[in-house]
């Protein structure tokens, strides 16, 4: 697993976003680097919700941020709406930024505690000189309404007066203020309580329809991913394992890692026994990743070939791609 390849790209259907061979490295010390994202390619069609799942430390958040050029990737290209934004510099890059926005896991700390809600949402509009103060004020009220907050009540308050769910609504309003085409959501509901989680997930769905957004949804919660996504990308140690539609992936996982991840989710039915775990141990250090397939050290089907040759993505079903020498057969 943890392979490369571009067989899964759908370049003929004019995707909104094409990411090819993306590499993001962090410096560990003077000599060594860790490749948090180690050559990943994928595309997102307009109106899709692509979910990126994996264990903590697999590079999913780094991947999300690298799409926004925060940090700038060390290799590969990100083509948004036909423009290669990895080649842009300075003001040219700045001009693209409103098109891609991000919301974060910890909504409360991602809002400026000293600003009133109206100023938090107005800030991007002001920076980009979108209309007069009066016009912007109307736009702020409209945005608050569309995320389900009453402008009269919340306009003049500050973030600490709100719960986590309400803060997430405010940060969604801020993110869509500049009419982006792509919204990257990094674990948007994992810090929220169960009953609030459903409200925010439904809100994101509404926003997507109302504003014609395309979403990239980063999460470690497989059940949440299943509820919201139209395509799922499974990551392990900076590489792609598998890509498929959620129904297909959960019913017939082809990668040993995806299968183990899905099997590890407890089933809310007391009549069903607990599934035996198939993955033991923790992921190896990304500073010194295993040769060949990066998952082989924890894989029960690993062979010698897995140690020497990196698996490439292959199609095992319609729109279902897996990077594994010995895919799970159903």
């Amino acid at each position: 697993m943890a392979g490369s390849g571009k067989l899964h790209l759908r370049l003929d259907s004019d995707p909104l976003l094409i990411v090819q061979d993306l590499v993001v490295q962090y410096k560990v010390n003077r000599k060594s680097f860790v490749s948090a994202v180690a050559g990943i390619s994928f595309d997102v069609l307009r109106g899709e919700t692509l979910a990126i799942v994996g264990e903590s430390g697999c590079g999913k958040s780094t991947l999300g941020k690298a799409i926004l050029q925060l940090p700038r990737p060390q290799g590969g290209t990100v083509v948004l709406d036909g423009v290669d934004i990895t080649a842009l510099e300075g003001n040219d890059l700045r001009d693209v930024r409103p098109k891609v926005q991000m919301i974060f896991q910890d909504a409360i700390s991602s809002l400026d505690p000293r600003l009133q809600v109206k100023n938090i949402i107005d800030e991007p509009l002001k920076v980009w000189k979108k209309g007069t103060a009066a016009e912007r004020s109307i736009k702020v009220d409209n945005l608050l309404n569309s995320v389900g907050l009453d402008p009269v009540v919340v306009r003049d308050r500050r973030p600490y007066e709100f719960s986590g769910g309400q803060c997430q609504r405010i940060s969604i309003a801020r993110a869509i203020a500049l009419d982006p085409v792509l919204l990257v959501c990094d674990e948007p509901v994992s810090a929220l309580d169960v009953s609030i989680q459903a409200q925010i997930l439904n809100l994101l769905q509404d926003m997507k329809e109302e504003f014609g957004l395309t979403l990239i949804f980063i999460s470690h919660d497989l059940a949440v991913v299943k509820a919201v996504s139209t395509r799922v990308l499974v990551m392990y140690l900076g590489k792609i394992c598998e890509m498929a539609t959620p129904d297909d992936l959960y019913a017939h996982p082809a990668h040993h890692y995806s299968r183990a991840l899905i099997a590890a989710v407890p089933i809310p039915n007391p009549e069903v026994g607990v599934d035996k775990i198939r993955v033991t141990g923790e992921p190896p250090s990304p500073v010194d990743p295993p040769t060949g397939c990066r998952f082989r050290t924890r894989c029960e089907s690993a062979s010698e070939r897995c140690a020497t040759e990196e698996p490439q993505l292959q199609e095992v079903g319609l729109g279902h791609f897996v990077a594994c020498h010995h895919p799970v057969t159903n």
Partner: peptide, 24 residues
Amino acid sequence: EALMKSIPRLDQSSGQRLRVITGR
């Protein structure tokens, strides 16, 4: 019932709207 139904589950098909408990 409302609490249990607001939680996304693996054995539900994708793309369904989640039930929410309104209010607080």
